[in-house]
Simulated assay, not measured.
Amino acid sequence: MMQVLPIQTSATTTECPPTGKLIVLTGPSGVGKGTLMRSLLQRHPQLYYSVSVTTRSPRPGEIDGKNYYFINRSKFEQLVAQGEFLEWAEFAGNYYGTPRETVVNQIQSGKLVVLEIELEGARQIRASFPNALSIFILPPSFEELEKRIRGRGQDSEESISRRLVRAKAEIAAADEFDIQIVNDDFEMALAAIEAAIFE
């Protein structure tokens, strides 16, 4: 059952309006979630994208407040203690979380809200939003996923090894989600996501 914010008073507000919906996009690191999400938002500006909070450093070209909200660990832990996150997880030595209040307000106002999050966070969302549409993005093969991660040139060998070990466990969880889409052909994968959201 959705947790309603204290400002809501009517018992009927515990249910989302028919048009409001939460869409969760997840999959292993390097599978192309971010690229698919950017194209989806360009094509459908009516979608509300929830910007995550993270303790990791910005990558080249990333903008605070657009790609992520970048904060330090102590501030993140303070927000966790205050119950400010809809979900949060630690991944590759950094925290990631979804701000609760904005997402709940947007859904209750009838918006389609999309999240691009890691597996652990996606599981937390399913527990609190059982009606959310969950989409798992798969690589064409594990070998292709490794090639993509290495091709980014952003991670140390140790970090790549950790990501690959974690990716195997994440791929094994794909069946937990409503829809699985293989990101082999980018346009076909994007079209499949659109079909799932707007059917």
Rank of each mutant, 00 (worst) to 15 (best):
E176T: 11
Q106K: 13
Q8W: 11
S52G: 12
P6S: 14
F142A: 04
Y69M: 11
S10K: 14
Q180N: 11
H44Y: 12
R166G: 07
S141E: 01
K75V: 14
S141V: 07
L36F: 06
Y69P: 01
E77L: 15
A92L: 15
L36V: 04
R38H: 06
D185W: 06
Y96N: 01
Q42L: 11
K75C: 14
F91C: 08
V165F: 06
R150G: 03
L5R: 05
S50Y: 05
G34P: 00
Q154R: 15
Y48N: 00
K168I: 10
A189H: 07
L190Y: 03
N183E: 06
L47I: 02
E170L: 01
P17E: 08
D175M: 07
E176R: 13
V182K: 08
G83Q: 04
R150E: 11
A195M: 13
A167F: 03
I135H: 04
I71N: 03
P6D: 13
P60W: 08
K168T: 06
I71G: 01
A92H: 12
G97T: 01
D64K: 04
R38V: 10
N67R: 11
L145H: 00
L119P: 03
Q124G: 07
R56P: 02
R43Q: 14
V182G: 06
Y68V: 03
K147T: 11
G121W: 02
N94S: 13
L47P: 00
G20H: 02
L133I: 09
T12W: 15
R59A: 15
E199A: 14
L36C: 05
L22A: 07
P17G: 04
Q106F: 05
A191C: 08
T102M: 15
R163G: 03
V4M: 14
E158M: 07
